[in-house]
Computed example of a mutant assay.
Amino acid sequence: MAALPLRALTMRQLQFFSVLVEEGQFGRAAKRLAITQPALSNAIKQMEKLLGVELLTRSTHRLELTPVGAEVLARTDFLVNTFEVALRDIESTVQRGRAFVRIGVIPSAAARVAAAAGEFTQGAQRDLELAWRDAPSNTLLAEVRSGQLDMAVAAITEPPGGLACIDLFRDPLVLVVRRDHALAAAGDADWEVIGKERLVLFETGSMPALGNPARAQFAQGAESYRVSYSETLYALVRSGQALGLMPRLYTSSLRDPELAVVPLLKPRIERRVVLAYLPGPMRNVVAQELIAFLRERLPQAAEPAVRRMKAPRVRR
C-alpha cells in the first residue's frame, strides 16, 4: 500500500512536471501552462517533498533530470497521457455517443490495417471513432508504452520490452530492380549474386537491423545508399544507380512499368509485423474488441504475390 504522502500527489502536479521537462525551462513551461513561474516552482518543490527525492538539478541555463527523476518522468508521462486520452474518451462518449480508440500503424501496413478496421467499424454494435497515427515502429511502440496509443501495428526484430505482442505475419525483404535488369528475368535472387551491386535502402526503421547483417556477410560492392522515402529509392533504381532493398509490404502499391519486384532468397530475411499493446486491463471495451478482431483478421490477409518477370523482348 502506498504511503500517505505519495497519495497526496495530484494530476496537476504531474502535468506540471511533464511540461516542465518537455520545455526545459521554468519560464516557457509556466507560459504554456498559463501560470506564474513561482507557482510552477512551488508545485515542483511540493512534489519533490512528497516523494522525498530530488527530481531535477537546476542551473542558470538548463534543467536536468536526476536518475530518479527520469524514472518518475516515464511513469508521469504514462499517467498524464492516459488521463488526457481518458478525458477524450469521456467527451466522445457523453457528447457524441461513441467510443474512441487510438491506433498506430507503420505506413507499409496501413492498407491492410485500415481495411480490417473498416470491417470492424461497419460491424460494430456501437458508434466508434478511430484516431490514426502513422509513424516508424520505434515511435509507435514508445507511444503505446506512454499511453498515447491503445495499440499499434509495428515491425520488430526483437520483442519490445513492456508490451504484449501478437504476431500477425512475416514481411520478407525483396529487391526492386529495373525491368531490363538480368535479375528481373531470373525471377529471384540471392545475397551472393547481388554482392557486387550497389544497394539503396531505408536509413531508419527495421532496415538497418535486417539488411546490415546479411549485407556485411555477402557484400563486396560499393557502400549502400541510405534514403528516407520510397520515392527516392524508386528514382535511384529507375535511373540505374542501385538496386532497391526493402520489405515486401512497401511494394504492394508499386505500379511502375519500369520496375520489377524480385524475391530475395538464401537467406530469406523477414521482419515480424505485430500488434502491440500494454498488458493488463484496457481502458475501454471497444479497444479490447478491436484487438481481438485484428488478431484474427490481419493474418488472414493474403500476402501479395511477387510475380516472376518475363525477360524483355529484344528487337532485332
Rank of each mutant, 00 (worst) to 15 (best):
L245R: 12
R226N: 05
S239L: 11
R297W: 02
D171K: 12
D167Y: 02
R145E: 08
A2N: 11
Q122Y: 03
D127I: 02
E64Y: 13
R58S: 07
T10V: 07
L149A: 05
E22A: 15
I90K: 02
A292D: 10
E203K: 08
E71L: 13
Q217F: 15
V72M: 06
D171S: 08
E91M: 03
M207T: 14
V176F: 01
V227F: 11
V105R: 03
R307S: 02
S18G: 04
L4N: 01
Q25E: 05
V274R: 00
P281W: 01
N284Q: 10
R12C: 01
Y234H: 01
V72A: 04
M282P: 02
R297K: 12
P263L: 03
L245I: 02
S108Y: 07
Q15T: 11
I35L: 07
Q95N: 09
V105G: 04
G240H: 09
A235C: 01
A292T: 05
V144I: 10
Q122T: 02
V68Y: 11
L63T: 15
A116L: 00
M309Y: 10
F218A: 02
P136V: 06
T10N: 10
A164S: 13
N212T: 15
L245M: 14
M47L: 14
R316V: 11
N212K: 12
I90V: 07
L33G: 12
T121G: 02
A214R: 09
T76W: 08
G195S: 10
A30M: 02
Q300D: 11
L9V: 12
L168H: 11
G97R: 11
P38K: 06
V21P: 05
I291N: 12
P213C: 02
W132E: 02
S252L: 08
R198E: 00
L233K: 00
R178W: 13
N81K: 14
E91F: 13
L168C: 08
A305V: 14
R88E: 04
G280S: 08
I194E: 00
G104E: 03
V306H: 00
G147H: 11
V174D: 00
Q95T: 09
L210K: 00
L275K: 01
T76Q: 05
T93N: 04
N212A: 15
L55Y: 12
E289H: 06
Q220F: 09
L254R: 04
S253Q: 07
S228L: 15
G27M: 07
A116S: 01
Y277M: 09
P159C: 05
V174N: 00
T204R: 15
V80A: 05
R96W: 12
P247C: 13
S253K: 07
N284I: 03
R198C: 06
R316S: 12
F26L: 06
L233W: 04
S230E: 15
G187H: 12
L56D: 06
L6D: 09
E84L: 14
Q241Y: 06
E223I: 15
D89N: 03
R102S: 04
D89T: 07
P279N: 05
D188E: 10
P312F: 00
